[in-house]
């Protein structure tokens, strides 16, 4: 390897910071954008504006409020730093509400998913005469949640309710109880009503997805000797993966948003045993005049939502890669 003299250093390029900065400024000026970019901006602007006004700004305001003590009316808000968050740690009702929210999201999502998929599978192979069941299964979806809550409140009524009467009629009167009055079971009683109300849309999505399942693959699996469970597990479910993702996402959102059913049926009682983070937030912010504490609760709910969403998306991505 020959050693050659290094070429003389090139004269330093003239520094043009001003020009660089100018070009960056130009890039941000809408007047310099291409016509296509401007068109995109016009179409995106309303959505961005709405998102800013109705999501981001309230979110930032909630975080700010959570650092204050405020009754929601008085013009003076007292800055208390993280005191509201510190109070959450010792708050027994908050712990109950977190536990119930996780039950609602975990058990509620799993139950709705399983039931709607099961019903869709039942309706899938049924003949024309069974089309009425598709309508029946979907009907709860069109009812307002408040109506569902009131009707299920009647069903659970300890004296006149259908549930206790049916139990009595079939000789299970020992199981009769005040379903919404016992702390250990009230949250599950309300969750059952919520699951009933939420399976309609999932059922329709799964029904549509099942129509796209390859009949050839199912026939091939049958020929290979796969039983019904194996065909479901290894042929049908993989072809429903996108529908499962969609339904799970929708159910997670639905269950995190749960509020009205509990508020209508028990208002968080008895003994605060059915409080969700959302109902406890409302109670603090609007009934008990503790807006700062309510805001701290809503921030916690947002954080839990974010964590669950990230975990779900990661799991979904990993499953897709496999």
């Amino acid at each position: 390897m020959s050693r050659t003299a290094a070429p003389p250093a090139a004269p330093p390029a003239p520094r043009r910071p001003a020009a660089g900065a100018q070009s960056r400024r130009r890039a941000w000026s809408p007047w310099r954008w291409s016509p296509a970019a401007r068109l995109a901006a016009v179409f995106l602007a309303p959505a961005i504006l709405l998102y800013l006004v109705f999501v981001l700004v309230p979110l930032v305001q909630s975080v700010w409020l959570s650092l204050h003590e405020w009754d929601g009316v008085n013009p003076v808000k007292t800055f208390v730093g993280l005191a509201n968050y510190a109070d959450l740690v010792g708050d027994r009702i908050f712990r109950t509400s977190v536990r119930n929210t996780l039950i609602w999201v975990g058990l509620g999502t799993a139950a709705s998913l399983a039931l709607s998929l099961g019903l869709a599978l039942l309706a899938w192979g049924a003949g024309r005469g069974f089309a009425v069941f598709r309508t029946l299964y979907f009907m709860p979806q069109v009812l307002p949640t408040v109506v569902v809550g009131i009707v299920w409140g009647w069903i659970y009524h300890p004296s006149f309710g259908a549930l206790n009467r049916i139990l009595d009629a079939v000789g299970l009167d020992g199981l009769q109880r005040g379903w919404l009055g016992e702390p250990d079971i009230a949250v599950y009683a309300i969750l059952a009503a919520s699951v009933w109300a939420s399976i309609g849309l999932s059922f329709v999505i799964f029904s549509a997805a099942l129509n796209n399942v390859s009949a050839e693959l199912l026939d091939a699996a049958k020929v290979d000797g796969a039983n019904a469970v194996q065909r479901f597990r290894h042929v049908i479910v993989p072809q429903l993966s996108h529908a499962v993702t969609l339904v799970t996402s929708l159910l997670l959102i639905h269950n995190f948003q749960a509020f009205d059913m509990v508020w209508v049926m028990t208002r968080g009682g008895p003994q605060n045993s059915t409080q969700l983070i959302a109902t406890y937030t409302y109670q603090n912010a609007f009934a008990d005049n503790q807006v700062g504490y309510g805001a701290a609760l809503s921030v916690v709910l947002t954080v839990i939502c974010l964590i669950v969403t990230v975990v779900f998306v990661r799991l979904r991505e990993r499953t897709s890669e496999v």
């Binding site: 659970y156 009524h157 300890p158 004296s159 109880r177 005040g178 919404l180 009055g181």
Partner: peptide, 20 residues
């Protein structure tokens, strides 16, 4: 009676107006 925690005010009123 029974189920005091499960009855709402309207439920109790219904019991009474229903002469139960």
């Amino acid at each position: 009676g029974e189920n005091v925690n499960a009855l709402k005010a309207q439920d109790a009123t219904d019991l009474w107006t229903g002469e139960q």
